[in-house]
Simulated assay, not measured.
Amino acid sequence: MTSITRRKILSTTASVALAYALLLPHAKAAPMLNDSTTFPLWPERPPGGQGPDSSGPFISSRGAYSKISVPTLTVYQPEHPNGTAIIIAAGGGYHYIATGKEAIPAARWLNSMGITAFILTYRLPEEGWNEGGLPPFQDAQRAIRLVKYKAATWHIDPDKVGLMGFSAGGHLMGMCASRPDWQTYQPVDQADSLPLNVQFAMLAYPVVTLKPPYNKTRTHRSLAGRDPTPEEEKAWSVETYITDKAPPFFLIQAADDRIANPANTAILQQACLAHHVPVTRYLFEKGGHGFGMNVPQGGTPWPELAQKWLEENHFLDKK
């Protein structure tokens, strides 16, 4: 697989309520999502202790989640599953999760191609958990293992599990894709005996590096804190962990992104190339940050580019 470099268009270019009711009898019910099933990630309380009170989650009018005491997976099943599964993490600087804007449209799009989609509602580091920045990574790792463990239930090939992340969710999924040996929690059941390797990662306007001069993001504040050492910033940066065993990456971003500097995807692309990891990067001239599944101004619809990439890499059968 080759790295794509172009200019103009691109330059280097059950229900939620049931899940909470089962674990937290007095929890406030979250709204149900049509043709989807939501279940908790952990059989009991998630690791880490403390966290927000059990009345959550809080869901804004735009479908942004916060105050997450029970992390969940919501599965969207296509009418004709093709065996591929993708776990989706929406962004929000690890301060909230933009599920309605990013994750749900992505799940619908994946279903249209026969891909089984899983929306991850992960815990947020600044909501009182005792283990600092680890909770979202514990939840993402648990999600990968559960999808593999229950693959037969959803007609999934466990060797065709990929990740998709937006903004801070791109950072979360980038870290998980590049760190399959990172053990963030003690095993709780048989599912946790499964490996964390995934087959590919698709990241949209991701935060990649927390190192200067790109250390002014909300993601940086949420994970590294206000006065981290250079070693801590390096430890929270995705490019630190890219090796020749990393899976293929598909990256998209806009050149006028003022939240995650376009250097983020360039840094990840260079790290992949240095280790001979297949990487495709599209950089649109305009689009800003947080365009979700929409088409950046003047650009080719990026979902079309992503579908072609999936087909060319045999994660999706050509129609």
Results as ranks from 00 to 15, higher is better:
residue 174 G to M: 02
residue 79 E to I: 11
residue 89 A to Y: 07
residue 124 L to D: 08
residue 133 G to E: 09
residue 170 G to W: 09
residue 84 T to D: 07
residue 170 G to C: 10
residue 99 T to C: 11
residue 161 V to Y: 05
residue 66 S to K: 06
residue 158 P to K: 01
residue 100 G to W: 05
residue 87 I to T: 05
residue 105 P to G: 12
residue 138 Q to D: 02
residue 171 H to A: 09
residue 43 P to G: 07
residue 81 P to G: 04
residue 172 L to S: 10
residue 62 R to S: 10
residue 47 P to Q: 06
residue 73 L to I: 12
residue 126 E to Y: 02
residue 133 G to H: 14
residue 155 H to F: 11
residue 45 R to F: 09
residue 110 L to R: 00
residue 124 L to E: 05
residue 108 R to C: 07
residue 86 I to K: 02
residue 161 V to C: 06
residue 130 N to P: 01
residue 88 I to A: 07
residue 48 G to T: 09
residue 89 A to H: 05
residue 139 D to P: 00
residue 144 I to M: 08
residue 138 Q to F: 01
residue 145 R to C: 00
residue 82 N to I: 12
residue 162 G to N: 04
residue 141 Q to P: 01
residue 125 P to D: 11
residue 49 G to T: 02
residue 47 P to D: 08
residue 49 G to A: 03
residue 58 F to L: 14
residue 150 K to R: 15
residue 59 I to V: 14
residue 35 D to E: 07
residue 65 Y to I: 14
residue 63 G to W: 08
residue 158 P to T: 00
residue 112 S to A: 10
residue 99 T to Y: 02
residue 182 W to K: 05
residue 147 V to D: 01
residue 168 A to G: 14
residue 181 D to F: 10
residue 64 A to L: 11
residue 114 G to H: 09
residue 151 A to C: 03
residue 130 N to R: 11
residue 145 R to W: 00
residue 154 W to G: 05
residue 65 Y to E: 12
residue 145 R to Q: 10
residue 99 T to G: 08
residue 143 A to E: 08
residue 149 Y to K: 13
residue 179 R to V: 03
residue 121 T to L: 15
residue 98 A to C: 14
residue 69 S to C: 14
residue 68 I to N: 04
residue 155 H to G: 09
residue 177 A to D: 01
residue 86 I to W: 03
residue 128 G to Q: 03
residue 174 G to L: 02
residue 40 P to Q: 06
residue 144 I to T: 02
residue 36 S to M: 06
residue 36 S to T: 11
residue 94 Y to E: 10
residue 163 L to K: 02
residue 119 I to C: 11
residue 166 F to P: 08
residue 157 D to V: 01
residue 147 V to Q: 01
residue 178 S to E: 12
residue 109 W to M: 11
residue 40 P to A: 15
residue 100 G to A: 04
residue 106 A to V: 07
residue 166 F to T: 04
residue 89 A to N: 03
residue 164 M to L: 15
residue 175 M to I: 13
residue 61 S to D: 09
residue 97 I to H: 02
residue 156 I to E: 05
residue 97 I to Y: 05
residue 156 I to H: 06
residue 87 I to M: 05
residue 142 R to G: 06
residue 171 H to V: 12
residue 113 M to F: 09
residue 139 D to R: 05
residue 172 L to R: 08
residue 64 A to Q: 13
residue 174 G to A: 04
residue 80 H to I: 15
residue 71 P to M: 01
residue 154 W to D: 07
residue 134 L to E: 06
residue 56 G to C: 04
residue 38 T to N: 08
residue 62 R to L: 07
residue 69 S to D: 14
residue 88 I to N: 14
residue 151 A to P: 00
residue 129 W to Y: 14
residue 137 F to E: 01
residue 41 L to C: 12
residue 59 I to G: 04
residue 60 S to A: 05
residue 120 L to H: 03
residue 109 W to T: 11
residue 172 L to A: 12
residue 169 G to D: 05
residue 155 H to M: 13
residue 90 A to Q: 04
residue 165 G to V: 07
residue 182 W to H: 02
residue 115 I to C: 04
residue 36 S to I: 01
residue 61 S to N: 10
residue 48 G to P: 06
residue 159 D to A: 12
residue 59 I to K: 00
residue 79 E to G: 08
residue 133 G to K: 15
residue 124 L to S: 06
residue 111 N to M: 11
residue 163 L to W: 01
residue 74 T to N: 11
residue 38 T to P: 08
residue 131 E to K: 04
residue 39 F to T: 05
residue 49 G to N: 03
residue 156 I to G: 04
residue 113 M to D: 01
residue 142 R to A: 10
residue 45 R to Y: 07
residue 116 T to V: 13
residue 41 L to S: 13
residue 36 S to E: 10
